[in-house]
Amino acid sequence: MTPANTEDKFFAIVSSLLNLPCDQLNRESSRETTEQWDSLKHMYLVMALEEEFGIEFDDSEVSDLCSAGALLDSIDGKLKP
C-alpha cells in the first residue's frame, strides 16, 4: 500500500505535467486511456518523477511503466529502505 502523501504528490506531478485536473486521474489512468499522455509527455513524466522523488527508474522499465498504478508501485518499491 502506497503511503497517502506519496500518492498525493505523485498525482500532483502527473496532473501538472499532463495538464489535467487531479480528479480525472487515478491508479487506472494509463497511456492508453489518457490522450494527453503521449510518448513525449511520458519522457518528461519519468524525468519529473525522478527529480521529485529522488529516484531513478531502470532503463528497461521506463517504457513499460505505462499506467499510474505501475509507476506508483515502482516508486514505492524504490522509496522503501
Binding site: 500532483a12 506531478i13 501538472s16 505535467l17 495538464n19 518528461y44 524525468m47 519529473a48 527529480e51 521529485e52
Partner: peptide, 12 residues
Amino acid sequence: DSYTSVFAEVAA
C-alpha cells in the same frame, strides 16, 4: 527547480 514547478508556473 524542477520540471514540475516549471510546467506549473508556465501553465499558470
